[in-house]
Nucleic acid binder design. Structure first.
Length: 505
DNA sequence: ATAGGGTTAG
């Protein structure tokens, strides 16, 4: 019974059956807990799972490798990777599933480096197990997260060698890896070489194209998918709507939205409505975007209001920006990104007094701007840079390089755009603050340490500011370098002084 | 009979 429910789409009753089992004093065996924990993992039922954990200890079944493996999986899927690791650490016997569960646990919980470290520890000599398709998918997922393209390529070579090329899950993960590393060409190659594609393969590439700024291609690919008579999922449609909004295709976006409902019977989720708000707002139809938010059938969440606030900042609509802000301070107070957006809006309309007032209220409320950090992979290492950081061993050279860059750009007629600096500091200091934004440190370091002609790839945790965007465009021209920046919201492919986002991000 | 994988708006 428990197994039946655990493996179904609605595993809830598995927990009820377990309670009846306890009431009837039926002794559990080593099969009971794995199924129960599987149900708890699906339901994200943390409390219930912890209870199962202590029951397994009480019944002396916690040394069973099956129970422990599901415990690792359960904790990881609830986001408690420390608990997962504690179970993993305490295990006397580990098998391939154990390793895969813990590596995947770190990979899906935003701990790519731990995932990679564990993968290295998993060598057959140490653990007696050999990575399989599951392991590789988690590994590729971790590489994708930190934009470790070279490492991902090595994993690609490796998995071809061990005969995993042809495993559709692995190939889908490769498409996602290359797309998330900004290398659409390689993503396409994997896609084209696939013997049998699933909807996920198509969706991964459509989303990948869209976020990389190739909206038209994403829509073409969607048409090709329809011609193959494949049925898109709600995720496919997110990609399609995203492509429309980032290309300014308002009418097209509405057409797809309606087709999603009528042709594919997909009930739009908050994500889809969010895309529609972005579609209108980005295109400058801020009033309509606001009406859309007010009339949507789902309760608008913080992300939706944030999208509207972003549109207001983009198009200098202080009135509606205040409306969005009023909702955001209720729905998601203390979100530093919202302060940044509002401050940029105030600055854009010249309300400097308000900028300072906001800054003070941030300080008073203890709202800290999230520190920007950027990653860049060179050779076998991923280097991390934090804004203004001087702890890197190459620090002196990097700052010298930044000076050189600044001088060269000034000759190109560059003037820093300081309006978006969220700080009550003097103009000259603002320039300095900008000059040390983390992506600039990363770019300078990469210019110093890579051969001409090799594209530089940066992964940033925040969105790039207008000034860094301009500077990166100029660097791409002055240093004749392709620079790919993946920021919080999308990709920027800088080449010869311009960006694939067409300054629309 | 028992455990693990891919794509999601700003």
């Amino acid at each position: 019974m428990i197994r039946g429910y655990a493996e179904s789409d609605s595993p809830g009753p598995a927990l009820l059956v377990h309670r009846q089992m306890l009431a009837a004093a039926v002794p559990p065996d080593t099969h009971t807990y794995p199924f129960l924990l599987k149900a708890c993992a699906k339901l994200m039922a943390l409390r219930e799972g912890e209870k199962v954990h202590s029951l397994s200890v009480k019944n002396g079944l916690e040394t069973c490798v099956f129970v422990q493996n599901t415990l690792v999986h359960f904790y990881a899927s609830c986001g408690l990777f420390e608990c997962a690791y504690k179970v993993f650490e305490g295990m006397d016997e580990r098998n391939l599933v154990t390793w895969n569960s813990i590596i995947n646990g770190f990979a899906i919980n935003g701990r790519p480096n731990e995932a990679l470290t564990l993968f290295r520890e998993m060598s057959p000599e140490d653990s007696g197990v050999k990575p399989d398709g599951f392991t590789i998918v988690s590994l590729l997922c971790a590489c994708a997260e930190i934009g470790a393209l070279a490492l991902g390529r090595r994993a690609h070579l490796y998995l071809v060698k061990v005969g995993l090329y042809g495993n559709v899950h692995v190939e889908n993960a490769l498409i996602d890896l290359y797309a998330k590393c900004g290398s659409i060409k390689e993503a396409y190659r994997v896609f084209n070489e696939m013997a049998s594609k699933t909807v996920v393969s198509w969706t991964s590439l459509i989303v990948g194209l869209a976020v990389n700024g190739f909206g038209k291609e994403a829509l073409e690919l969607f048409s090709a998918m329809e011609r193959e008579r494949l049925v898109p999922t709600e995720i496919t449609l997110v990609g399609v709507l995203y492509a429309c909004s980032h290309c300014g295709l308002v009418d097209e976006g509405f057409k797809y939205f309606n087709r999603m409902k009528n042709e594919y019977n997909i009930v739009p989720k908050i994500e889809h409505y969010g895309c529609m708000v972005d579609l209108l707002g980005r295109a400058g139809l801020v009033e309509q975007a606001h009406d859309y938010v007010m009339n949507m059938p789902l309760e608008p969440n913080a992300v939706v209001w944030r999208t509207l606030l972003g549109a207001c900042a983009m198009h200098k609509r202080l009135d509606l920006g205040n409306v969005a802000w009023a909702r955001l301070v209720v729905l998601d107070p203390g979100h530093s990104g919202d302060y940044v957006l509002l401050s940029n809006l105030y600055a854009a309309v010249g309300r400097w007094g308000e900028v300072h007032r906001l800054r003070r209220s941030m300080l008073k409320g203890g709202v800290r701007k999230m520190p920007g950090h950027s990653l860049v992979e060179l050779g076998n290492r991923v280097h991390e840079f934090v804004m203004g950081d001087r702890s890197h061993s190459w620090s002196d050279e990097i700052y010298k390089m930044l000076e050189e860059i600044a001088n060269k750009l000034r000759l190109e007629g560059y003037v820093p755009r300081t309006t978006n600096v969220l700080a009550d500091i003097e103009e000259e200091e603002k320039e300095t603050a900008l000059n040390y934004h983390s992506e600039r440190l990363a770019i300078a370091f990469a210019l110093l340490n890579s051969a001409p002609g090799v594209p530089i790839r940066i992964v940033k945790n925040l969105r790039v500011c207008a000034d860094c965007h301009l500077v990166t465009k100029l660097i791409s021209k002055v240093y004749d370098r392709e620079i790919v920046v993946r920021d919080r919201s999308r990709f920027h492919h800088f080449r010869d002084g311009s960006c694939s986002c067409k300054d629309y991000w």
